[in-house]
Nucleic acid binder design. Structure first.
Lengths: 327, 327
DNA sequence: CTGAAAGCGCTTACAG
DNA sequence: CTGAAAGCGCTTACAG
């Protein structure tokens, strides 16, 4: 482990002061072109790289963007990250990811690590963080939540999709295809789940199908998905709108286990249109959240905050429906 | 954005010197218990948290572990991350993830970001980084590669699984089940792929099946997987050993498209035993790499380096075979 | 048990 | 166009 060269090393080698090196390397117009070049060459020779820690300490800016994600397993989340990364790069920001599974304490700690690092902005892709932790972080650093209906916390921006509309797209599509007994598989009390459920119920009502609304809650503690599905199948349901692609995958899997044909016997619609939708057989019809776009918008909101905006912004993007073989 | 409180703020409020606060907060035994408590209370009130940047700058240690990953889509990679995170936490290290798809330049830049941050150690889960970049990073920071047969670079540790043995497990299993015409689907020139291929060929020879060795290379530029598979099927092959689960998934998908029964007509074995193996129908038999363990060992090697070890260490773990319905 | 001082590697006014 | 000085927020000897 050789110690890395510092500004002082470059200055000594070039026979100039530290400040001149600093100015030159950052392309300050006050430095002569020839001097700048000479210094740059020496810096390259030495393999000099500005110490992010030191620079961040004095500038108060680190050009780092922190992303907190609770699940690396759900492709929907990681696809948002891709959008964030692309947009961040365009703004000269480096993205640091921290992953905290569903452990609230750990997630909060990770949030601390990031704010402690003085990242310039924070993107949170997780519904598991508690409001107080989010609020505390947002007091120090611009923060935007992605995919979670905006928390009741001041000072936080959000980017979401219109979950009620998405649910309506799914139901309308199934009804248009002649399905009338549409069950909804959901889980959890989180805002997005609740909104999709509301959208489902409203759409069913609109189609005069309020009497067959059936909600299968797969939250821990509820009945096992299998049992609930068996019951729904027994009761003649011919379609399922699942809360997300992961749930839809499980529904299809179970239906096939029971010897049902998908979509002939049971049509299935997912939500997210993640990579998982292309991994089911048959391929999954799914409500498409514009994930890359959501990531990009999140970065844009952060940059606006850095530019001085102080009022909260909540962007709601329109989902679309991607129709595949499962319906 | 209120500025965060500093050591000075806490000291002023407590009526003591900065140094005392620093000592007290880190639990230095030289500080009286009552004093320590009083200071701790005030720090908590103020919401004080040590600035990682400043601390890192002076200590030369950041208690940060950097992980470079090229794919967030392959569950095999993210499952290694889980192992790294768990072990890191046990050592009081926070894990920072950077993701660089398959863009060599971007990956190298990310590596720079991390070394620039003075992370204490680096875990690289990617076969895409060039040796010179790795070597440069390793000169500054302990670095361990996971899953890639050790690069020909000094100063880098590695944790891998025995790919040749894994391939042998797969072939032996298929042959024991009565399959004789086993094709191998591979791709890329990377060490792991080559080792699995060697293992496949050796095992086939050992079973006296050298004459039916058939390698399907799905590298870009090679023939499409579909065409190559169709040919193999036409030629009477009754089993496939795929380079990894992702490839196995595609093989099964295509076989089903062609109306083949898996495993009756075509048995399939994957490699990695990632979450994907539980997402195929039928469930995929796969060579299990001990991913959590590999992640944990990587952290252990890093910690040893920090403790002063200077010779390179290359750990090779034994894979096992997880048998499921696809064979 | 406690305080004053130096220094980590940088940037930023401020003089020349 | 260039250099000396202060300071970002911390830790670490070093005196008392």
């Amino acid at each position: 482990m050789t110690p890395r060269p510092t500004l002082r090393d470059v200055a000594a080698r070039a026979g100039v002061s530290k400040s001149l090196v600093s100015l030159a390397l950052r392309g300050d117009p006050g430095v002569g072109e020839r001097t700048r070049e000479r210094i740059q060459v020496i810096a390259d020779e030495l393999g000099y790289r500005s110490n992010v820690l030191a620079r961040g300490l004095v500038q108060g800016r680190t050009h780092l963007l922190g992303v907190v994600i609770s699940s690396l397993e759900n492709p929907y989340h990681t696809e948002i990250v891709a959008g964030v990364e692309e947009a961040a790069e365009a703004h000269g920001l480096s993205v640091l990811l921290v992953h905290g599974s569903r452990d609230r304490g750990r997630l909060a700690q990770h949030l601390d690590t990031l704010t402690g690092l003085n990242v310039d902005g924070l993107v949170v892709i997780s519904s598991w963080l508690e409001d107080e932790h989010l609020a505390a972080a947002a007091r120090r650093t611009p923060l935007v939540m992605v995919g979670r209906s905006h928390a009741p916390v001041q000072g936080i921006d959000s980017v979401t999709n219109d979950d009620e509309l998405g649910a309506a797209l799914a139901v309308d599509h199934l009804v248009a295809a002649g399905r009338t007994r549409v069950a909804h598989v959901t889980g959890g009390r989180r805002p997005a789940a609740l909104a999709r459920r509301r959208g489902y119920e409203a759409a069913m009502s609109r189609h005069g199908l309020a009497d067959v609304v059936r909600v299968v809650d797969r939250s821990p503690g509820g009945p096992a998905l299998q049992d609930a599905l068996d019951e729904a199948i027994h009761d003649g349901y011919d379609a399922v709108f699942a809360r997300n692609d992961v749930a839809a995958f499980d529904v299809i899997d179970h239906a096939l286990d029971r010897g049902l044909r998908v979509p002939a016997d049971l049509a299935v619609v997912g939500y997210d249109d993640s990579a998982l939708a292309r991994r089911t057989r048959p391929r999954l019809t799914s409500v498409n959240q514009p994930r890359e776009r959501m990531g990009a918008r999140a970065v844009a909101l952060l940059v606006e905050r850095l530019g001085g905006r102080t009022d909260d912004q909540h962007e709601v993007l329109r989902p679309t429906l991607t129709v595949r073989a499962s319906t």
